[in-house]
């Protein structure tokens, strides 16, 4: 999924990102962070479901999945910080591309929760 060029592509990428982060945090034994990622995933699934508005569906440009590749093999403190930084950057970049305010807000908040 290189180009995140639709509403669904952006949200599906975010949902998959949180799914992977939850597994990552579980593996390194940080249950609180894993739970937080799960909560965000569920929220993003709900937002994708409830805010896809036919009359405002427009092409999205300038967002590429390759720019937000996570290295989840690095389980060091630096690796964890790096993952959070990339996730935060993704949400910061994605939010302004979405033209439905409730959906935009969910992305902004997810970004803040990752420390952005």
């Amino acid at each position: 999924m290189p180009s995140l060029n639709t509403f669904g592509a952006v949200f599906t990428f975010a949902i998959e990102l949180e799914t992977r982060l939850s597994a990552y945090y579980s593996y390194i034994g940080d249950a609180a962070m894993a739970r937080a990622a799960d909560k965000r995933r569920k929220k993003l699934e709900r937002v994708r479901r409830e805010n896809v508005v036919e009359i405002t569906l427009e092409p999205i440009t300038g967002l590429d999945a390759d720019d937000y590749a996570l290295d989840l093999n690095d389980r060091s403190a630096a690796g964890q910080a790096g993952a959070a930084r990339i996730a935060s950057q993704f949400y910061r970049d994605a939010a302004p591309k979405i033209n439905v305010r409730a959906a935009q807000r969910a992305l902004e908040r997810s970004g803040r929760e990752h420390g952005g």
Binding site: F7, G8, R48, R49, V52
Partner: peptide, 29 residues
Amino acid sequence: VEDNFEKVSQIVVREHGKTMDEARGEVRR
């Protein structure tokens, strides 16, 4: 319908040919 939202959307895509966003938008409506 909410619980089966993604499944319904996928059925719509497969039989109609529209995109997932369009199918989700249809189910939402």
